[in-house]
């Protein structure tokens, strides 16, 4: 893989991981996690591990995001700010 593209994707992954940990809104964290999974999928495709990338795209970005949204649907806000 071209090292400039690799560097940009790795930097974006680090930025997204820090943003997921630091955000207060659960729904924002879930959507950012989907983006994180997709960038990991791109990275693995660049390394040549297409099967792992396929699994990451199907499970990480697809089903797990939907399951997280279903879990957030059951939560309530403690404060009304």
């Amino acid at each position: 893989m071209i090292w400039q593209v690799d560097l940009i994707i790795l930097l974006l992954i680090v930025v997204l991981a820090i943003a997921i940990v630091n955000t207060k809104n659960l729904f924002t964290a879930t959507i950012l996690f989907g983006g994180y999974s997709f960038l990991m999928c791109v990275l693995w495709t660049g390394m040549g591990a297409v099967d792992v990338a396929f699994t990451e795209a199907a499970v990480g970005a697809g089903v797990s995001t939907a399951v997280f949204v279903a879990a957030i649907y059951q939560t309530t806000r403690r404060s009304k700010d």
Partner: peptide, 10 residues
């Protein structure tokens, strides 16, 4: 690439 697990997830 693919298989039972990925197809089932889709």
């Amino acid at each position: 690439p693919g298989g039972g697990f990925q197809g089932g997830c889709i």
